[in-house]
C-alpha cells in the first residue's frame, strides 16, 4: 500500500499524513506571523486600508529607534519584569517552605493559596484599582482609620506609587505559581542528602543554602520561564489600573503598542514595536531556559 505512494526516491506517505497538521500550522501561526512582519514594513493604518500596500521598508523601525518614549517603556518593562519576578520568587519560596512544614490542613492551604490564580487579571486589576483609589480606596481608608496618616496617599496618581501598586497587584496574583512549583520541588526532594548534610556539620541555614536551594533551582527556573513570558506581555492589569498613566509613568511596552495599534490606528508602527518587544520576551525566556538546563544537568542521578 505504502509502496504505491513511493514515486522515485521520496516517500510521500509521511508527508501526506502530516499535511493537515502542516496546513493548520501554516494558517494559524506562519501566515499571521508573515503578515504582521510585512505590515511592520508598511505605513498600514487601520482607518485607511489601502495603506497596506504602502511599503516603507524600515521606516517604522527607524522611527522607533529614535523614539524616547518607546525606550523608556522598554526599560520600564524590564524593570517591572525584574522586580516582579524576584519578589514573586522570594515570596513564593517563603510560602512553599512554610507550607511544607505544616502537617495539618496542608491540602486546604494549598487550595486556598491558588485562589488568586483563579481570577481573571482584568478583575484583579479592577479590585486593586478600588483598593488603591486615593479617595474611596479601602487602603487609604484603613491607613486613615488607624491614624497612620491623615492624607489621601495618591497610590495610582503618583508615578512611582502607581508603578508600585501595579507590581503589588501582579505579585499578589502570581506569587502562587512560584509557591506551587517550589512546593512540588520540595515534595520531590529526597530526604537523605538533607540528613547527610546535617551529619556533615551543616546548621539549618547551611542545609538550606547548600542543599535545598540548589535542588529547588530547576523548579524556580521553570516558574521563571513561564512567568517571564507572562509578565513581559503584561497589559490587562496596567490597562485597568492606570491605563499607562499618570502622564505615561506606568506605560509598558504592550499598553503602548495597543494604544498605537487601536487608538491611533497605526498598525504598521505598532507591529514594528511588537516585533521589537518579542525580542525582549525571547531574551528573558531563553535566559531562564538556559539556567534551567544548566541547573538540571546534575539532577539526573539523585539516587
Amino acid at each position: 500500500m505504502s509502496r504505491a505512494f513511493q514515486t522515485g526516491r521520496v516517500n510521500w506517505t509521511p508527508v501526506l499524513l502530516l499535511l493537515p497538521a502542516i496546513g493548520v500550522m501554516m494558517f494559524v501561526v506562519a501566515l499571521p506571523l508573515v503578515f504582521s512582519l510585512y505590515t511592520s514594513l508598511t505605513s498600514y493604518r487601520l482607518t485607511r486600508p489601502e495603506t497596506i500596500w504602502d511599503f516603507v521598508w524600515f521606516r517604522n523601525y527607524e522611527r522607533l529607534f529614535g523614539n524616547r518614549d518607546f525606550w523608556v517603556a522598554f526599560g520600564r518593562t524590564i524593570l517591572f519584569l525584574t522586580i516582579a519576578l524576584n519578589v514573586q520568587l522570594i515570596l513564593g519560596l517563603g510560602i512553599a517552605l512554610l507550607i511544607n512544614k505544616i502537617t495539618w490542613g496542608q491540602r486546604t492551604l494549598r487550595t486556598i493559596m491558588m485562589f488568586p490564580m483563579m481570577f481573571s487579571p482584568i478583575l484583579v486589576g479592577f479590585q486593586f484599582k478600588f483598593i488603591f483609589n486615593d479617595n474611596i480606596g479601602i487602603l487609604n481608608n484603613a491607613l486613615q482609620s488607624l491614624g497612620w496618616t491623615d492624607r489621601a496617599i495618591p497610590w495610582l496618581v503618583d508615578g512611582k506609587l502607581a508603578m508600585f501598586s501595579i507590581i503589588f497587584a501582579e505579585v499578589w496574583m502570581s506569587t502562587s505559581v512560584f509557591a506551587i512549583l517550589l512546593l512540588a520541588g520540595l515534595f520531590a526532594m529526597p530526604r537523605d542528602p538533607l540528613e547527610a548534610a546535617k551529619v556533615d556539620g551543616c546548621n539549618a541555614w547551611q542545609v538550606f543554602r547548600h542543599i535545598t536551594l540548589p535542588f529547588l533551582m530547576p523548579f524556580a527556573f521553570i516558574a521563571m520561564t513561564i512567568r517571564s513570558l507572562d509578565i513581559a506581555r503584561a497589559y490587562d492589569i496596567v490597562k485597568v489600573m492606570t491605563d499607562g498613566g499618570p502622564a505615561g509613568r506606568t506605560e509598558l511596552l504592550w499598553t503602548m503598542i495597543a494604544r498605537t495599534a487601536y487608538q491611533d490606528a497605526r498598525m504598521g508602527q505598532a507591529n514594528a514595536a511588537a516585533y521589537l518587544s518579542t525580542i525582549l520576551s525571547i531574551a528573558f525566556t531563553y535566559y531562564f531556559y538556559l539556567k534551567l538546563v544548566e541547573s538540571r544537568r546534575y539532577m539526573g542521578g539523585v539516587q
Partner: peptide, 21 residues
C-alpha cells in the same frame, strides 16, 4: 546535641550524595 556537633559521619542506604556537586 544536633548531628553536626556529634563528630560522627554516616553512610546512607541511598548514598545521599549531593547531586549538584
Amino acid at each position: 546535641l544536633p548531628p553536626r556537633k556529634r563528630n560522627i559521619s554516616m553512610v546512607f542506604q541511598n548514598y545521599a550524595l549531593y547531586p549538584h556537586m
